[in-house]
């Protein structure tokens, strides 16, 4: 039992690292966490996040361990249908089996909520999940994270958290044709993020990025949302901080900062 409890606690922690709560919870005060229904607007239509509470009929209560890892790693639901990459399986594919199953253990420990998923609101060319399948065939490589032995443990922990759990690049990395992330421009900002929104460049460029931020500045920002000049962020990043990064240990936030600071400076002007 004690082992189960520690697995559930680990899963809860990793759920925050993975940013699951923000998208899988409706953007309303008093919304039930993880019961889905949040509208995710994108240039490819509006996606509604599904219920991931353990309700058998409307949530993921009927899923096996392999169903869960296949969803995270391959972007496939238990029926074998493709998920659209609004679900960041392209990032979660790097998560280890142990970590994935810890998250599942936590999700199965919370109260089941009956809430039927909403249909996505997509343009005609996206209206079949086969489109998602074709996209994956062309642009997606599944695979677990492997540490870079030339780098420190702290850097590798940061890389694992940023690239795979936190999926920071989903918002902060610019996209090319068909929404493919431009890997050479990792975290260099996204000038076209939904409705007239831009997402900042967080590479080490001093003018356009966060090159003037210290490790401590980044760690503290991820903890309480304060920018180095004393301003406080609101909006989407405010939610990310509140739901996710502020719940992590200081060591993990420093690892994230270490990895981010190591990225080459890019000059994407937003």
């Amino acid at each position: 039992m004690a082992a189960d409890e520690s697995l559930v606690a680990k899963g809860e922690y990793l759920l925050h690292a993975g940013g699951c709560i923000t998208c899988h919870t409706k953007d309303e005060e008093d919304a039930i966490p993880l019961a889905g229904g949040r509208a995710l607007e994108s240039p490819f239509g509006t996606f509604y996040s599904p219920n991931i509470t353990p309700d058998v009929d409307t949530g993921i209560g009927g899923w096996s361990d392999d169903d869960f890892t296949t969803a995270l790693w391959e972007g496939l639901n238990p029926q074998g249908d493709h998920y659209f990459p609004a679900f960041p399986f392209t990032a979660y594919t790097g998560i280890s089996r142990d970590d994935a199953l810890a998250i599942k253990a936590y999700l199965f420990s919370i109260d089941a909520v009956s809430r039927t998923n909403l249909e996505h609101d997509l343009p005609f060319y996206m209206s079949t999940r086969l489109a998602a399948g074709a996209w994956k065939l062309r642009y997606f490589d599944a695979g677990r994270f492997t540490p870079d032995t030339e780098q420190s443990d702290q850097w590798n922990r940061g890389a694992y958290l940023v690239r795979h759990f936190g999926h920071c690049g989903e918002c902060h990395t610019p996209r090319g044709r068909l929404g493919v992330l431009l890997e050479d421009e990792e975290l260099a900002g996204n000038p076209e993020f939904g409705d007239d929104e831009t997402v900042p460049n967080i590479t080490a460029d001093k003018k356009h990025g966060i090159g003037r931020w210290s490790l401590s500045d980044i760690e503290y920002f991820l903890d309480i949302g304060m920018l180095p000049d004393g301003d406080f962020t609101g909006g989407a990043m405010g939610a990310v901080i509140e739901d996710n990064t502020s719940q992590l240990t200081r060591e993990d936030r420093l690892a994230i900062a270490t990895y981010i600071k190591s990225l080459p400076a890019k000059q994407i002007v937003l």
């Binding site: 609101g234 909006g235 405010g238």
Partner: peptide, 12 residues
């Protein structure tokens, strides 16, 4: 941050 979230334009 809470006040900025509701009452200030989101900006980079």
């Amino acid at each position: 941050g809470g006040c900025h979230d509701d009452f200030r334009e989101e900006h980079d």
